[in-house]
Write a protein that binds this DNA or RNA. Sequence first.
RNA 1: GGCGAGGUAGCUCAGUUGGUUAGAGCACACGACUCAUAAUCGUGGGGUCGAGAGUUCAAGUCUCUCUCUCGCCA
Length: 572
Amino acid sequence: MARILITSAIPYINGIKHLGNLVGSQLPADLFARYNRARGHEVMFICATDEHGTPAELAAAKAGKPVAEYCAEMHDVQAEIARGFRLSFDHFGRSSSQRNHHLTQHFAGKLAEAGLIREVEESQIYSIDDGRFLPDRYIEGTCPNCGYGSARGDQCDNCTKQLDPTDLINPHSTISGSTNLEVRSTKHLYLMQRSLRDKLEAWIDSKKDWPILTTSIAKKWLNDGDGLQDRGITRDLHWGIPVKKGDQIWPGMEGKVFYVWFDAPIEYIACTAEWADAQGLPDAAWQRWWRTDMGAADVTYYQFMGKDNVPFHTLSFPATILGSGEPWKLVDYLKSFNYLNYDGGQFSTSRGRGVFMDQALSILPSDYWRWWLLSHAPESADSEFTWENFQVSVNKDLADVLGNLVSRVTKFCVAKFSAHVPSAGEFGEQEARLIEELGQRIKDYSACMESMEVRKASAELRAIWVIGNEYLQAAAPWTVVKTDPERAQAMIRLSLNLIRVYAILSAPFIPDAAAAMMAAMGSDDWTWPDDIAAAMSKLPAGHAFTVPDNLFRKITDEERADWQQRFAGIRT
RNA sequence: GGCGAGGUAGCUCAGUUGGUUAGAGCACACGACUCAUAAUCGUGGGGUCGAGAGUUCAAGUCUCUCUCUCGCCA
């Protein structure tokens, strides 16, 4: 039994994520977690909401709520939707937790001790009425170059000239509109990634089995232009983790918080601590997942994320870990995904284009989405969601191939025999061939799952479903029953057992349908079918089963047309 | 403009280190079957692998140029 730590990139707090976000991290991570649990491994699957930073403050202000309250509410909303998609997190935490406060401050302290933090004095625009500094895009004014009236602090959108906020003529705050501004000096902390560059490169070079997408992005940041740059890890904001050196005051940094990208990945660790707290377990329970000196030496750590997150996970976060000088677990395998496009364009959160997680669940159960998204996961390149493709894939794969198989077997048995596993007859050559092929197919399927080849795994699973139909078609129990009912009974006995095995194999992709299949077979034995022959006799003769309702209904042309129109425009 | 990723059957995509007649699913055509959600199974048609040039005994697979798409950055 292996010990497997899995983290999904943590979704930002300000709103509900779309299907592209889901398929890029949480969903494949869940697939991998479910599979490994099914194989009997010890799994810790962690996700959380990423709650700090200006966008959260602004969203809260827009909603007319204190930011802490807003985040708490949105966390609950996201947690509920995650449950709806059957995302099987061991814990869904919050980056604003006290655990993360302490751990983030701890890491900053260790980095300072190691001489990897430098303090930088900067000039920024301060809004007296807003009571805050105004980072680049929160200040606008007239461009000194072209006279454009809405130039941003960092750049003029009209003439593209790069600006310093202090260059703007008649600047004003984009938050309040106030012109009561002044230049103030402010101090910030920088993580000296440059001095960790060689260490990071050596570490990345040691990862020979990582996807090209992952390593090429990391290499680009290491080598592009002037190479890896030091990174500011503090901000002049109210909402966030107060800057401290461990549990000590950091002189000159009072009132400042850590930058969201510094504390967010640390939440992976903190979230595991939150899990232990929620379970009433001591610190050792989470430390054995993260501290190689406290039992995590045999843990294999997998991260899942969209490609936009790769630089932070290959460079910034490892810099934090390595720089601390403490024996924290580094990622062993980083699985990254490209983007999912929506009907010829991009999903857009701001424009409400595409399908969002809550909307998806409101029109169809999660299994439909899980199956389509995973079987079309953007692994090697960006991929495309269209309603036509969604409709035909789901109808064919789920309703026709799998759902109908369950239906035809159970209904035939009840009609010709009874609602009990038939007892007569022996397995013959056809059954032996099926079992042999199934064994090979399951091996291929497992190999894909272990190497996280999501699309290939889904294709293998589908092929496994198909051989059930092939077998039935060739064996033709509906014909055999007329002349040799005992032989037909053996065929159906095998087929009923096949349904139970399919439930086990399919559960990582479509957990609800799998549960329905298992329940219909009157079993709760989810043991992975390592021994296929034995698994095909698991349901004993005379064992009672039920005919389940159709596992999957078909999506009609009318529905497809309706949804296509509904989700093309603006989210209301 | 710079960088990155791509352009393979009508559609969505596979194609290891260059090596026999380029694959899958869907769609389409025909056939079989009739237990089942008008489901299933079988057979078949269909591609000058974006364009051009080069390296090689041999290129979808390597090199160069061009072109188109998408994303990121400035």
